[in-house]
Nucleic acid binder design. Structure first.
Lengths: 251, 251
DNA sequence: TTTCTGAAAAGTGTTGACAGTTGTCGGTTC
DNA sequence: GAACCGACAACTGTCAACACTTTTCAGAAA
């Protein structure tokens, strides 16, 4: 099946495309903060670093533009997107709706195994609160959310929800979880689990929606606190940090 | 600013990228049925037809893959996506959730002008029902939905919702609106308008959600009818028409 | 006739190069 | 000294060509 040079098959036994690999890599770099909001993607440099040419890099960027992690400017290339306060708040609303939907669907079909998993995650979050270990709590919290979405058994939802979360993370990085809120947050988790256990779809939906909206409220509070300490710009100022506002590309 | 040959500036005064243009073009071809589910996109042919090279075409395809209109197979290129019955039903659930969210948000901020627009659309739909003019009703119905989403003033939602609708249209084309359902559908519109008028967010959300889920129920009925007349394959068979099942690409 | 085979044709994945645009950084003018 | 100017460097958008894979199809074998 592999025609020539069975030994040095380092290059081009074309078993995979570069594009998804690059896409993940850029996602990773954004996730770790290696690439921060607003910075430009230098295609040539990135291609060189990955040992490939610009074509696949551009394709990956085009894909990432579509899911909202990058934006493009004509003749200036791709930039890591900046998410304004307004957009971040909008994302909370969408997530609330989708998360509620996930819960409604999940309540009808959730398995006992999945319920046990959720219960265990809640217990571990309690432990993290006692420690206290914010990083672990944050991670477990994400895991809990992911589990609920997966339990909905809605493939599109399972695909969509993390994309929205990733986009939200583009908002200037800050401690998203207030230490004081962990306990109440986990109490909400418990109520959610109860609703799911009782196959109470509308109840679960309502609780999950409120859970996210509570997150939105906390988010808003941190914004207000910041603007209070930082000074001038109003608490809900939709403007962002960029100095140079060019008209963004279409779509 | 334009350096050479001011007359025949047919080529390359680079004021726009080809990619969005091609993307729209492919979307259009899918929308009109010129490209049907499952067919392969021939990059070379398409590029030739548009008078450009394959690079931008590939970028556009990559973008369309990300929003769910195309899928890719290694060394075989891009295909117009096929949406299975399960996926179509999943999409209805997501749309229901998002549409409800849109309504909840819109109820709080909808303007009198927007309310009047919605009212007018409802009136025109009534007229279309009387005619009866199914095509016009279908179009006005879409317009109504779009208006509600726009009234939410949530940019991401406004971007997302039509994408889901487009994806749903990839399900093997069929008359999505049953003639008999137009009247009840428009009655639902009227109830929705009332809720919005009264700034009743939760009411609007519930009604909008049910409105979409009613569409899902009708969709299910048409499926059952079809399978009854067509013969063997079960009403909820998730399998699709493809003969050759290869492992699809990741993501 | 039907089934295999293998070579040519067709088409994708990637590359390197070119044309055009944007940004930089001296020097020049006011 | 600050604002302008123009050449140069850096970079994007696009193209044409190459390497490899998949598909097709005529001819051989059963």
């Amino acid at each position: 099946m592999l025609r020539r040079s069975p030994a040095n098959s380092v290059r081009t036994p074309r078993t995979a495309s570069f594009v998804p690999v690059i896409q993940r890599e850029i996602e990773r770099m954004i996730g770790t903060g290696e690439l921060t909001s607003g910075t430009r993607i230098n295609e040539s440099t990135l291609a060189l670093r990955l040992g490939i040419s610009r074509g696949p890099v551009r394709e990956a960027c085009r894909a990432l533009e579509q899911i909202g992690l990058l934006r493009s400017e004509l003749n200036r290339g791709f930039f890591v997107r900046e998410v304004s306060t307004k957009e971040a708040l909008d994302l909370y609303d969408i997530r609330a709706g989708l998360f509620g939907t996930a819960g409604r669907l999940a309540a009808a079909i959730v398995t006992t195994v999945q319920l046990r998993d959720l219960e265990e995650l809640i217990a571990r979050m309690d432990a993290a609160i006692e420690a206290p270990d914010i990083a672990t709590f944050y991670q477990l919290n994400n895991e809990f959310h992911r589990h609920v979405v997966v339990a909905s058994d809605n493939a599109k939802l399972i695909e969509l929800y993390p994309l929205l979360e990733a986009e939200l993370h583009l908002f200037r990085r800050r401690g998203l979880v207030l230490p004081g809120s962990m306990r109440t947050s986990n109490d909400e988790h418990k109520a959610i689990l109860d609703a799911l256990r009782q196959s109470d779809g509308t109840g679960a939906a309502r609780l999950l929606e409120r859970h996210i909206l509570a997150g939105k409220a906390r988010f808003l509070r941190t914004l207000e606190d910041d603007s209070a300490t930082e000074g001038r710009p109003g608490p809900l100022d939709p403007r962002n940090t960029r100095s140079k506002d060019r008209p963004s590309n279409d779509r």
